[in-house]
Design a protein around this nucleic acid. Structure first.
Lengths: 175, 175
DNA sequence: ACGAAGTGCTTCGAATTCGAAGCACATAAT
DNA sequence: ATTATGTGCTTCGAATTCGAAGCACTTCGT
């Protein structure tokens, strides 16, 4: 079953993925309950609040969503909620400049203490000072390395998905 | 802006979340391309392949999806694709026992080498032996601690607070 | 034995995600 | 200048997620 990953690697991998999953889920709950926003929306607002001025859609999306359309969707929601504004960029008419509104800043401020509390309770409370140092160094390295990797398009011969083939063979579709 | 998290904590937190996000995205691409399955589906199949016998839906869901309905949906897809089977459990007629089929095992075997390759390229190649040790220890601790925290959706159903039950008994009570 | 409460799973609707295709503007090549 | 190619964003459809509500069976309390 492990086929190339020794048990230590396998355990580390699964623990990492699941720990982040649980953390994300808890964070999501807190943000929804206290601010009515998702984690993605929080990230976008936080980025804008941290930035010095407006950002383009692409800059804003970077590292938060993995499709452009996803950002368009979220920006639409945030704009409708009055948390951001979208304007054009004189230097490049294609681009859209996104700014955070005072309401947006206020919401971030309202939600942040609870957010910090959750991350503290679920993540930092389990970490010694040394752990924190190490984890920060490791994950920064991993992130930077992973982001530099090619977007994985060199997929070998694309086999037909098993689920699709089976769906054809089984005409008793529920919808 | 940081309001309770020092910059080191903040940087670690963001690096962690984003690194896992990127890793997950790459893994998803590989699994979709080489096996036609999602990461969630792979996790479910891997769990079943690792287990000694069939698992109940709840056991299978644990740590993979955060809602029971999510598992029902995925189990439906996997069953239709012939990768798992669902049967009843004589000891408890409510429960559903899920088993992996030979096809399911074959698919896991087909997909695993590429999966290992991606995790190696994106994660383990950036880690020294010491890093791996540390990361494993840290994330195992964080995961176990986080999983023990209250709001877990795949966990036992939320118990009604005594106050709620009392409100039911006296429906004309003011709020 | 009987009803209340709990547990396991499914159904349903709403929200969110992505990728592909499309549109508008920008830049490069000739 | 004109055309080709590239870039930024949006629209669209399909897939997947969750939570609430519901159904069926089980267990508990009396």
């Amino acid at each position: 079953m492990t086929d190339g990953l020794d048990p230590r690697e396998l355990g580390t991998y699964f623990a990492l993925m699941e720990a982040v999953g649980v953390l994300q889920h808890h964070v999501e709950q807190q943000l929804r309950a206290e601010g009515g926003i998702s984690y993605v929306q929080f990230q976008l607002l936080a980025r804008l609040a941290d930035a010095d001025g407006p950002l383009t859609m692409t800059q804003l999306a970077d590292g938060v969503v993995y499709s452009r359309s996803g950002l368009t969707y979220q920006a639409g929601l945030l704009e409708k909620a009055g948390l951001i504004t979208r304007g054009s960029f004189a230097q490049d008419e294609r681009a859209t400049l996104v700014s955070i509104t005072d309401e947006g800043r206020a919401l971030v401020g309202q939600v942040l203490p609870g957010h910090v509390q959750v991350t503290r309770r679920l993540l930092f409370d389990s970490l010694s000072d040394d752990d924190l140092q190490h984890l920060g160094a490791i994950m920064t390295r991993v992130r930077d390395h992973a982001r530099a990797q090619p977007p994985r398009s060199a997929a070998p011969r694309k086999r037909r998905a098993a689920a699709d083939a089976a769906a054809d063979a089984a005409p008793d579709s529920p919808e």
